[in-house]
């Protein structure tokens, strides 16, 4: 029981940490990592909630698996976009035309 609460608290903490990072950091890669931290926090909360009632709740675990798939694809997409953005900026920078 207390183990579940511990993981619950840790998950919330991770989520908050991720949010903090997302709001404070500017670099796209760091912000993507912050988002992933938020995601991990959420999944941890869900897993903790699933085991809280004594037996493991299969629904929540199924949700976590679905969520992981979504998160992985979203991260991949974000990374690809960040790379393209970075490449575009570095091409633009010498001309000094592009404003950030």
């Amino acid at each position: 029981m207390s183990g579940a609460s511990l993981y619950l608290g840790l998950g919330v903490l991770l989520w908050l940490l991720g949010l903090h990072g997302l709001l404070r950091l500017r670099h796209p890669l760091r912000r993507i990592m912050a988002i992933n931290l938020m995601g991990s926090g959420t999944f941890m909360v869900m897993v903790a909630l699933a085991s809280r009632s004594g037996h493991n709740d299969p629904v929540l675990q199924a949700l976590v698996v679905t969520g992981l798939v979504v998160a992985v694809s979203a991260t991949a997409f974000a990374l690809r976009l960040a790379v393209a953005h970075q490449a575009h900026r570095s091409r633009q920078r010498p001309t000094g035309e592009h404003e950030e």
């Binding site: 989520w15 991720g18 949010l19 997302l22 796209p28 912000r31 993507i32 988002i35 938020m38 995601g39 926090g41 959420t42 909360v45 869900m46 909630l49 809280r52 629904v59 929540l60 949700l63 969520g67 979203a74 997409f77 974000a78 976009l81």
Partner: peptide
């Protein structure tokens, strides 16, 4: 994209709490 992902995770955490 980043804001939208963060928003989804906000929403998802809420869903988790409600389910819990």
């Amino acid at each position: 994209l980043l804001l939208s992902l963060a928003a989804s995770l906000c929403y998802l955490l809420g869903v988790a709490l409600l389910y819990g």
